[in-house]
């Protein structure tokens, strides 16, 4: 394959990954890493490096639109970033110690659990009767946003602030270890534990994943894992895709986003487990 064709193939595939990522509140890394390694036959090191950069681009592009539309909760985002950034640095440094096989298995199990948990809650459109806990009150984490699908303002409060912070540390560590945004872990933590509305969880995750990825990208850069020839088409494509995805998001109700998200969770979970036991490379 010549350089230009290679560049264009990566570029077009990245647009698709970015669109899906923005709709689901993911950085697109969980879609990109399998694509780059399996379909394009690239080394996992480069796939992770390109994914990390694209995660920052997606998050920046999508976050800008969400912040302006006030769906994203910046206070929650910053509060939880305390845990994700420390987690990301831990993860980037632990990457050389922990066996990836074991990590794939743990990741697969966590994702499988998230899929089941979200499946159970599928009927609820918005959380009801949630009251701020002590930390949520202290940092005033509650908020409100306008939901065009419901055509009204939604006020919400936040619970599970401590457990949410703990889960975010793990999400950050997974991000640092695998080079993904780990929005796939952040969204359930906010949705299921902190009981934020689905759209707020998704948008706040998008705001946070770039900050999380920024905490570990330096380590990958110095390791020589960020190949500009791969990362350039991926980052540009993912950003364009993220803009498309952001514009699509408001047309879906929370239930339809959740359905797509569950399908992705199951798919990635199975992939990770198979990789962990060495059946699937």
């Amino acid at each position: 394959m010549n350089t230009l064709l290679f560049f264009l193939v990566l570029f077009i595939a990245s647009i698709a990954a970015g669109t899906l990522g923005a709709i689901l509140g993911l950085g697109g890394g969980v879609i990109l890493v399998p694509f780059l390694t399996l379909a394009m036959g690239l080394d996992i090191h480069y796939a992770i490096g390109a994914s990390l950069v694209s995660v920052i681009a997606t998050s920046s592009g999508a976050a800008a639109a969400y912040v302006r539309s006030k769906v994203s909760n910046l206070r929650v985002g910053l509060y939880l970033s305390m845990a994700t950034t420390i987690g990301a640095i831990s993860g980037a440094y632990l990457a050389g110690v922990v066996s990836k096989q074991a990590l794939y298995i743990i990741f697969g199990v966590v994702l499988g659990y998230s899929a089941i948990a979200m499946l159970k809650k599928r009927k609820s459109e918005l959380p009801v009767g949630i009251k701020n806990d002590r930390l949520a009150n202290y940092f005033k984490l509650n908020g409100s946003y306008h939901d065009p699908a419901l055509s009204r303002n939604v006020d919400y409060q936040v619970t599970g602030s401590v457990l949410g912070l703990g889960m975010m540390y793990i999400a950050g560590a997974v991000s640092g270890l695998l080079g993904i945004g780990s929005g796939i872990l952040k969204v359930p933590a906010m949705d299921l534990v902190m009981r934020l509305p689905m759209k707020v969880s998704s948008a706040t995750s998008n705001f946070m994943i770039g900050i999380t990825a920024a905490a570990s990208v330096g380590v990958y850069f110095l390791r020589g894992s960020i190949n500009p020839f791969i990362a350039a088409p991926v980052a540009i494509g993912v950003l364009l895709g993220a803009i498309l995805g952001t514009h699509f998001l408001h047309r879906f109700t929370a239930t339809s986003i959740r359905t797509v998200f569950i399908v992705v969770l199951v798919f990635v979970s199975a992939q990770m487990l198979l990789k962990g036991v060495g059946i699937y490379h």
């Binding site: 950034t85 990301a88 380590v219 850069f221």
Partner: peptide, 18 residues
């Protein structure tokens, strides 16, 4: 400020590690 300091330290730690 805490998040900012963690992000800055990650670059310094990365530098030391590299």
């Amino acid at each position: 400020v805490f998040v900012f300091l963690v992000l800055m330290s990650s670059l310094i730690l990365g530098k030391a590690g590299g």
